[in-house]
């Protein structure tokens, strides 16, 4: 692996079984005996190669179901690759979008402590950041409210605020972002979220960014990958890739 390359993925393949789960032991045994057919599988990622240089900001775009999030989860270590290899010099931090990981029946406060811990912060660190998280999300009057009682916009603000403040504190060297830019919050919040994100980008951190926000890709990314049916359809200058991707809809 070259010195300035922080992440190297080779010939990544990922398949998922699309059969109905029948995990009763009896059902499994019967199925094995009665059916000889091969398991139905769908190939979500198909021989993807990827190099990421230190300080690079790589955007990944594509239609729904093209494999963007799956690829990111493989790189993050949430899914394992069926085939291929991944070499990663730095431990990646993965953040995904709307309401992920929130416990609906717990309060806003409890969720901040829980998600903060999952993202690697100690209880003391979370206590230090707590007020900032609440204020940024604009949820000062809802600290003890259960998440199930919040509006979808509030949930977006809370998720983003927890995520971005954890990032600020942990200062990871490799960041994998999956639609985390506050879409769903009001305009004021989206502006704040963008400012925070810009500040993060300017720190020189290496980022892979999965988003449908093409303006964001063109504005910040050094390189862009267009994923279609699990394969890299095109990669290169963000302007060019975004242009061709947009044309594909017409």
């Amino acid at each position: 692996m070259e010195k300035n390359i922080i992440l190297e993925a080779r010939e990544i393949v990922k398949e998922f079984s699309i059969e109905t789960k029948s995990q009763s032991l009896l059902a499994k045994i019967l199925k094995e005996i009665l059916t000889k057919s091969q398991k139905k599988k769908i190939r979500v990622i198909d021989k993807v190669n990827l190099d990421l240089r230190k300080g690079e900001l790589l955007g990944i775009i594509g239609r729904n179901g093209s494999g963007k999030s799956t690829l990111l989860k493989i790189l993050a270590g949430i899914y394992y690759p069926g085939e291929g290899s991944i070499k990663c010099k730095k431990e990646p931090l993965y953040l995904s979008g709307w309401g992920q990981g929130l416990q609906q029946r717990l309060s806003v406060k409890d969720n901040i402590f829980l998600l903060g811990s999952i993202n690697g912060l100690s209880q003391r660190d979370i206590r230090k950041k707590f007020r900032e998280i609440i204020d940024f999300a604009g949820l000062r009057d809802f600290v003890e409210a259960k998440v199930e009682h919040l509006s979808s916009g509030m949930i977006t603000r809370l998720t983003f605020s927890i995520g971005i403040h954890c990032l600020e504190h942990k200062k990871p060297e490799l960041l994998l972002l999956d639609e985390v830019f506050g879409a769903g919050g009001d305009l004021e919040f989206q502006r704040k979220a963008l400012e925070k994100t810009e500040a993060l980008i300017k720190t020189g951190i290496t980022i892979i960014l999965v988003t449908h926000n093409l303006d964001l890709i063109q504005k910040y990314c050094n390189r862009c990958i267009w994923l279609e049916n699990g394969r890299i359809k095109m990669q290169g200058e963000p302007e060019k890739v975004v242009e061709d991707y947009t044309k594909s809809f017409s």
Binding site: Q103, L106, D110, F113, L114, G116, S122
Partner: peptide
Amino acid sequence: LRGIIGLSWSLTKANFKLRNE
């Protein structure tokens, strides 16, 4: 190890609250 224990403690507290809610 510290990370695992810290996270476990948070999960335990959350589960305890959920169970007695």
